[in-house]
């Protein structure tokens, strides 16, 4: 059944995306909104969870396997394996909590550098909870500056109100589709093991940046 759905004809590419960021910034909510268009109180993620969504983007049928990590986990040996083979990484912060933003540069960007196995992998910065505009402490400008510095995409969104949620994933995926090396990795109806990395086939010229 699922196996059937995962077989080749069903999609052109399979991409692994990763959600990271501090605990409580709304990673799981963002994912839930994206995959099932709902919003509810969620228990904190323990370890890792993930969801799969089939999408049509850029004329391609895509299967997205989105890994939702626990923000509190600081367990190197553990977290490092989540990064393996990811074509896209979404860094999430909460625009109403500055520490979640500063931790991006202090913690999360470093983790990516350390563990990401694919140099070309697309990174995206997402400021969540813009529905709480009155409580906002991190400005959009700050987000843009950060994104520019780290060469990643940027969006502000709200899992609660749905604003920009789809766009987050769409932009990220479009960028991946523009990156030949990632495409090669993802074109694996063939590949059974998305964790096993093929040697980068072509060094993609497209580097990710906004």
């Amino acid at each position: 059944m699922d196996s059937a759905s995962s077989s080749q004809p069903e999609f052109d590419y399979l991409f692994k995306l990763l959600l990271i960021g501090d605990s409580g910034v709304g990673k799981s909510s963002l994912l839930l909104r994206f995959t099932s268009d709902s919003f509810e109180d969620l228990s904190p993620t323990i370890g890792v969870d993930f969801k799969v969504k089939m999408v049509n983007i850029g004329g391609k049928k895509l299967k997205l396997a989105i890994w939702d990590t626990a923000g509190q986990e600081r367990f190197r040996t553990l977290t490092s394996s989540y990064y393996r083979g990811a074509q896209g990484i979404i860094m999430v912060y909460d625009v109403t909590r500055r520490d979640t933003f500063t931790n991006l540069s202090d913690v999360w960007a470093k983790e990516i550098d350390l563990y990401s196995t694919n140099q070309d992998c697309i990174k995206m910065l997402v400021g969540n909870k813009v529905d709480k505009e009155s409580e906002r402490v991190v400005t959009k400008k700050e987000g843009i500056d950060f994104a520019r510095e780290y060469g990643c995409l940027f969006l502000e969104c709200s899992a609660k109100t749905r604003v920009n949620v789809e766009q987050c994933f769409e932009e990220l995926v479009l960028k991946i589709l523009e990156t030949p090396s990632l495409l090669a990795e993802g074109s694996s109806g063939i590949k059974k093991n998305i964790f096993k990395q093929k040697p980068p086939e072509a060094d993609a010229s497209t580097s990710s940046c906004c």
């Binding site: 699922d2 196996s3 399979l14 969801k51 998305i194």
Partner: peptide, 11 residues
Amino acid sequence: ATENATSCLQR
């Protein structure tokens, strides 16, 4: 019956 880690982990 799963053919990749994704569907396997999903279950």
